[in-house]
Amino acid sequence: MRAGMDNVSIVIVGVGGQGTLLASRILGAFGVNRGTNVKVSEVHGMAQRGGTVVTYIRLGDCAVSPLIEDGCADYILSFELMEAARALHYLKKGGTVITNTQCISPMSVVTGAAAYPEDLPARLKEKADTILVDAYALAEKAGETRAVNLVLLGALCALTQGDAAEWEKAISECVPARSIEVNLKAFELGTQVI
């Protein structure tokens, strides 16, 4: 049984600049609209310059501290494949990883000092319930490559058997008016992955 959205801890990971903050803002708005307890912890500053970024979102009674400890996340929502693997320690036993299959090389890989790890999808699946989403391609299909975040949220909505209208309300509250349409399209494509 995967966790629903009533009492849930979600770790969002990605690479600085990928739009992880917008995803956490939408989940925050989602929780507020439901009238549940909400805690979000974000990363600003240094880490935004292309480094690993980690954001925590907790909804419901579990939301005491805004941080999610090792072994306590119901979901890991990862914007990049290697970051999903790096974040596994957050996952609760029985939790689910939803990850974009896009690979972005860190500088050590670019310069050849390290290699991008191989077989990550299989290695992830071996360790945890893992849902692979080609979010970049779907975002491109929706007409905005930066909408990877909305595709992944769509997948989360479908996995938690969410009410699309409730999600769309939160999305509309958080994205600029001129890009609502393309974001909702990306979200919808994400829901169809599951």
């Binding site: 292309g50 690993t52 072994g71 693997a85 996952l91 036993k93 050590s108 890989v109 790890p117």
Partner: peptide, 19 residues
């Protein structure tokens, strides 16, 4: 007792970089 943890496999670090 602490919650059980799934070990993250070792990954190359991703420090911030000049844009």
């Amino acid at each position: 007792d602490n919650p059980e943890v799934i070990e993250s496999p070792g990954m190359p670090a991703r420090p911030p970089v000049l844009c």
